[in-house]
Design a protein around this nucleic acid. Structure first.
Lengths: 114, 114
DNA sequence: TGTATATATAAGCAAATAATTATATAATGA
DNA sequence: TCATTATATAATTATTTGCTTATATATACA
């Protein structure tokens, strides 16, 4: 089933990170689509620094990784992370967030930026 | 697979609750054994009010329930809770905590109290 | 080379969290 | 009925968190 159980300390740390609605939704979205910061700014109607700070926390524990593409920095889930399978089991149980991206495409925000 | 996905808001709330090492371990233990407050005080080497407050939070969202047995109040996981299957998937991936209870039995603390 | 755009980072602050200490409640047993 | 034990609750405090505003950096493009 699972190679090895996640340590309690690490598990609690991951859960605390995911225990924020914004970050949880980010990870759920990133699990199926790469996104850049400006898309999240649109989706969550939050300031750019607030978004960047959430992404920083996710990056610091290795849950997401970043990749610059020209002017933009794209984030994606780091599926090689030791805790990815732990996280994936949680994400599985969450509702699809694709309609959030669809809204961006409809109002053109997705195209403009990325 | 799952009847219905857990709402993002609710999921984040549950994850935040479990994102504390003490509470996460409590729930993992309670998932297989009922326990009373004084046992947790021993296990975690924490003050009784601190333990009671953690249990209160878990009870407030319905993850655990309490049952008085004479002088003691026993806590157990509320498997009827709407979010139990969500939580159970997480607990599955955590290492067994039985040795923590074993320590209590060895030093007699488990018997004395409960 | 200068300006605009995307992003990160730092500093400051208000709200939330998790502990402590002190006190209240409830059951047990002499 | 009184002392003891188990637990809850309230008040206080220190720490952490998540935002804001201000500023820095890095790329693109005219």
């Amino acid at each position: 089933m699972f190679k090895t159980a996640v340590e309690m300390e690490k598990a609690a740390m991951i859960l605390k990170l995911l225990g924020d609605k914004t970050r949880l939704t980010m990870v759920k979205i990133l699990d199926s689509h790469d996104c850049c910061v400006c898309e999240f700014v649109e989706i969550f109607k939050m300031s750019q620094p607030a978004i960047s700070q959430h992404l920083r926390k996710l990056k610091d524990v290795g849950l997401v990784k970043e990749e610059r593409r020209g002017q933009w920095i794209f984030y994606s889930v780091n599926k090689n992370n030791a805790y990815y399978s732990f996280v994936a089991e949680i994400l599985k149980q969450l509702p699809d967030q694709d309609e959030k991206l669809k809204v961006l495409e409809e109002n053109g925000t997705r195209m403009t930026c990325c």
